[in-house]
Amino acid sequence: MLMTDGEYRIEINGINHWVKIDGSENETVPLVIIHGGPGGNLYTFERTVGPLLAVKRTIVYYEQRGSGRTEKPSSDQDYSIKFLIEDFKEIKNWLGAEKVDLLGFSFGGELALEISDALPEVIHSIVLSAPSLMNSEINKMVQITGFMSVVNNELYNEIQKIQKEALSIDEIYNKVWSLVDTETVDLLLFENQENAKMNRKLWEESNLVNTGLMY
């Protein structure tokens, strides 16, 4: 395939995938963006960081099965790293590129590593942005500590009380998340709250819902 800018609908492993190419005139090794979530999308990235990268790079966006503008599989059971790797392999073949670079953020960073481990011969380089380690205790501890660094005194004391209970990390993590509101989450995620507001606005504008099935 001769890569040309535009949005595409490609049937891969029985699922209609949304793919977009930008910056094809740069004729670089394609930089494939791997979104997080699990089950998130690229709508915000596509309208913020993406155009800046496309000034010098050929960018390939795609949204994973059951995510964003890509169709769900017929079975709610058809979500796994193995399926996602097979989907990526077919997208890479459709692109016709010998090798690609990966930029994975959050869960996408974890998936980028899985893809690179399974298909090392087709990966040129990888950029990881805040890669997650889903379901790992260290990931949950980092988030709990992060919340304690941004919450008000009242909520800080509540979290401290939870930590003194005889609970597992999973139980503490779930209780902390039940206490925090969207404003607190934004304080954790963004140093600049104007960026947080823009992010929320784009989320709402996208009308793309995370069903939770990927997780």
Rank of each mutant, 00 (worst) to 15 (best):
G66W: 00
S74R: 09
V176R: 13
E11N: 15
E86A: 13
L42A: 05
Q64T: 10
A118Y: 05
N93C: 07
R47D: 13
I85Y: 00
V60S: 01
E171T: 13
W18M: 04
A97H: 12
Y215N: 13
V60F: 07
T28Q: 12
Y43H: 13
N199W: 08
T184E: 11
L133Y: 11
K164M: 10
N192C: 07
L52A: 14
K72D: 07
E27T: 14
G40H: 13
Q143C: 09
L95C: 04
M214I: 06
H124F: 08
G36Q: 05
T44W: 02
T211G: 03
L2Y: 08
E154P: 00
V55T: 06
S106T: 06
E7P: 10
M198P: 02
I126T: 14
L42D: 04
L202R: 02
T58C: 10
V49D: 06
G14S: 14
N157V: 11
I115N: 03
S80M: 10
E165D: 14
L189E: 07
E137M: 08
G37P: 01
E63T: 14
L95T: 11
E90K: 12
F190G: 06
N195P: 00
A54L: 05
V185P: 00
L189G: 11
G109N: 03
E137Q: 08
N207A: 15
A118G: 08
G108S: 09
W203N: 08
G109V: 02
